[in-house]
Simulated scan of single mutants.
Amino acid sequence: MKETIVVVHELYPELLDSLKQSFDIVHFTRLANDDDRARFREAMSHAVAFIGSNVPFDRALIEQSPKLKVVASVSVGVDNYDVETLKAHDIVLTNTPEVLTEATADTGFLLLMMAARRAGEMNRMVVNGDWKASLGRDQFGVDLKGKTLGIVGMGRIGQAVAKRGHFGFDMPILFQNRSAKPDVEQSLDARQVELEVLFREADFICVTVPLSAETEGLVGRELLSLTKPQAIFVNIARGKVVREQELIECLQDGTLYYAGLDVFEKEPLPADSPLRTLDNVACLPHIGSATHETRNAMCDLAAENLLNVIAGKAAVTPV
């Protein structure tokens, strides 16, 4: 009798077919309703492995999954998982670092450029038929070249965003990180500063920190009020790193010039969110790693982790 693997993800077809040859696969594209969630919990009660993303693994779910050996997350962030409870039950948690670095950094820089040139606004103007004449000065954007780029969290993704700015647009780099990064300071001619200094001096600010107890609610009015008159703030980390209501208020009252967001406190973005109607924000539907090549590579790494653990081998990228 085949062992059961539960999948909550759009694994690409060839990988899913490959897993089906050796395992009984219970597959959900997503957990869309109460019926899906009930069937998911029932499947987890006899599953040896889980592969997927966007599923909270709390103590109750873990304790109701007695056969579970591995949780192979198709993501870098692990804020959905009760890591200590998984560890206490000898369940291996893995993630997919590195393979999504470049795609996510591209998204960050896309938002920097969209916000700088007010691309969302300009697109709506064309689509809605409001482009009647040449642009006036009140519709101009700002340049990137030579402006100061501040990176909050100089990990892999932060460094990749900084490289795009430094080498592509001659942007001086400031960064804040919990540990020293002398190699980054040297290779990018970057300067490590306190968070308040970064928000005060940078023209563009990009947040790339993981969500944790220390970073939840890290950015709010106190920091945003320090920014320059035409500063642009971008978040490609997690929505809860930012106090969203305070961000909205700062955009509404002019404290912050413009924002670019790929992540939100609640996803999908609620229908009544003011972010849907503000002109001075560019919003994307959490597309950070959403390219065919990157998502396939993430799935491959997650599957390799899963198969290794089931076979009694070491995971490639354990958390």
Rank of each mutant, 00 (worst) to 15 (best):
E121P: 00
Y81K: 05
L278N: 05
A119S: 10
G52S: 03
M122P: 01
A32R: 12
R243A: 04
Q176T: 13
D130A: 14
A314S: 11
E267V: 12
R37E: 13
V209K: 06
D143R: 15
N305F: 08
G254N: 05
T96D: 11
E14N: 02
T104A: 12
E3F: 00
G288V: 03
F264W: 08
D279C: 04
R124I: 07
Y12E: 15
G146V: 06
R200W: 03
N128H: 09
V8H: 10
F109I: 02
L68W: 01
V126T: 09
E244I: 07
P172R: 09
A47H: 05
L226G: 04
D34H: 02
E42V: 07
S289M: 07
L110E: 07
E267T: 10
R30F: 11
N177A: 11
C250I: 03
V26C: 08
R39W: 00
R243L: 12
A314W: 00
V127A: 11
E214T: 12
D24C: 07
H286R: 12
E222Y: 00
S18N: 06
S289G: 10
L174Q: 07
A38D: 11
H292G: 07
D82A: 14
T104V: 14
V76I: 15
V83P: 00
G168T: 10
V70Q: 10
D36H: 12
G77P: 09
I25K: 05
D130Q: 14
V316C: 05
I310A: 06
M122S: 15
I62K: 03
D262C: 11
V99E: 03
D183P: 02
E267I: 11
K67H: 10
L11V: 06
L275T: 11
G155H: 00
D170N: 10
N235G: 10
T317W: 05
T277E: 15
R118T: 02
R156Y: 08
R156A: 15
K313E: 13
I62E: 02
L247R: 04
P285N: 15
T85W: 06
A72W: 04
D90K: 13
E185H: 01
R30Y: 13
V78A: 15
I287C: 08
E244N: 05
E267F: 12
V242P: 01
F204G: 08
F264C: 14
S289Q: 08
V161A: 03
E267W: 10
Q245R: 11
V92W: 01
A231R: 01
L100H: 01
F175I: 03
P172K: 13
F23V: 09
S73T: 12
V7Y: 01
M154H: 04
G288I: 03
M298V: 02
D170K: 02
D82E: 14
S75V: 04
I310K: 05
D253A: 07
D35N: 10
R276P: 03
M171E: 06
L306F: 04
S73E: 14
V92A: 08
T148M: 11
A259I: 04
H166G: 01
V263K: 12
I51R: 07
V142N: 09
Q21D: 11
R39M: 06
D203M: 13
T29A: 14
Q159T: 05
L144I: 13
L256Q: 08
G153M: 11
S18A: 14
R117E: 09
V70R: 02
D300R: 14
